[in-house]
């Protein structure tokens, strides 16, 4: 399964080497042009009828992770987070470090050695170390350098008939949907961007889209689903199993209404269930893209994912398929000139 490979590949913001190579290998046959830019975004192009709108589909390939900031004398690695990580999820996890994927564990003082009051407080990043088993700093430095990145060593697997587990579904699920769509042929000019550095401030996609200057953009994301115990229904944001989530507004964008309407019409005409992303918090690459130059009509379609930014996230395969189908149907209608995008703001 494509999503499995994507999920297990490493690619922390600013160090997306492995995931980029994987995606490039998988899609190069299906596109007319493939290139990287100054930041490392992977940009692909499929030519089309220039009388139709140029569409950009974007998904970010970077993931949150850790960076090694110091090798201690005893061989342990100090680190800092890259992107938004809840520090409370780090302790006792397996990680892989650097290009050679050196295995390590994140350890902390055993419970026996802690005072009861200590046990109640979350561990600070400074109290945590990656242990790769090196006996001292000299041994560690043979395989790890300062600046190397580390990610969770989470294996992808199927949990129930419809549920899969893995790391970095935010936004490898978007990458996976985009890669599947790129295998299809549509009539309009299509660009795909697998962007870098989304998790450290929405930096890659805007740069990639600047030269493309598309007529329309859809950002494909994996977004928070908080339909879990302890949260009330009105703060779920999205619900797993209820189909693709359309962003109505977040911290970075109010999506273009004409484009949103077209996506909704497509869903309704083809009987694909959808939901709105009902939180206005956080943001995506769409925030950068829609403000480029004189403005680019942009929308965001997401697969709901539980426990994003943690070592193990969950998603529903029906949501995945429905998201892919919705975007495919949208592209088919765009091919046939089926939309009239009048600005109605």
């Amino acid at each position: 399964m494509l999503l499995a490979e994507l999920s297990e590949a490493i690619g922390v913001s600013g160090a997306e080497y492995e995931i980029r190579d994987l995606i490039r290998e998988e899609i190069k046959e299906h596109v007319d042009e493939i290139r990287t830019d100054a930041l490392g975004n992977l940009i692909v192009h499929k030519e089309g009828d220039s009388s139709l709108p140029t569409l950009l589909l974007a998904a970010h390939m970077d993931e949150i992770g850790l960076m090694v900031t110091k090798v201690e004398k005893n061989g342990l690695l100090s680190f800092k987070p890259i992107g938004g990580i809840d520090k409370r999820v780090l302790v006792s996890k397996k990680v892989v470090v650097g290009k050679d994927k050196i295995p390590g564990v994140i350890g902390a003082k055993a419970i026996h050695l802690q005072r009861p009051s200590e046990r109640k407080r979350p561990l600070k990043i400074k109290q945590l170390y990656i242990d790769i088993g090196a006996k001292d700093d000299k041994a560690a430095k043979k395989v790890v350098n300062i600046g190397d990145t580390a990610t969770f060593a989470t294996k992808f697997s199927q949990l129930g008939p419809k549920t899969v587990k893995g790391k970095a579904f935010d936004d490898r699920v978007g990458c996976s949907v985009l890669m599947e769509l790129l295998r299809n042929d549509y009539d309009f000019p299509l660009y795909g961007v697998f962007s870098v550095q989304e998790e450290v401030g929405l930096r890659g996609a805007g740069v990639a889209a600047y030269d493309i200057n598309p007529d329309l953009t859809i950002v494909i994301e994996g977004t928070t689903a908080s339909d879990v115990p302890g949260s009330k229904e009105h703060v779920y944001s999205t619900t797993v199993g209820e189909g693709p989530a359309l962003t109505m507004m977040d911290m970075t964008i109010i999506p273009n209404r004409g484009l949103m309407q077209s996506i909704i019409e497509t869903a309704e005409d083809t009987n694909i269930g959808y939901q709105f992303r009902r939180s206005t918090a956080a943001g995506t690459d769409a925030g950068r893209i829609h403000l480029l130059k004189e403005g680019i009509p942009t929308a965001v379609v997401s697969v709901p994912v539980r426990y994003i930014h943690s070592p193990a996230s969950l998603l529903n395969l029906d949501d995945y398929e429905a998201t892919k189908n919705l975007l495919n149907e949208f592209c088919k209608r765009l091919s046939s000139g089926g939309f009239n995008f009048e600005k109605d703001n």
Partner: peptide
């Protein structure tokens, strides 16, 4: 104020614009 949720009794939850 943007509508984020409508509950079964018709109460509307919202977030800020």
């Amino acid at each position: 104020l943007i509508v984020t949720h409508i509950d079964e009794n018709g109460f509307i939850r919202f977030s800020n614009v």
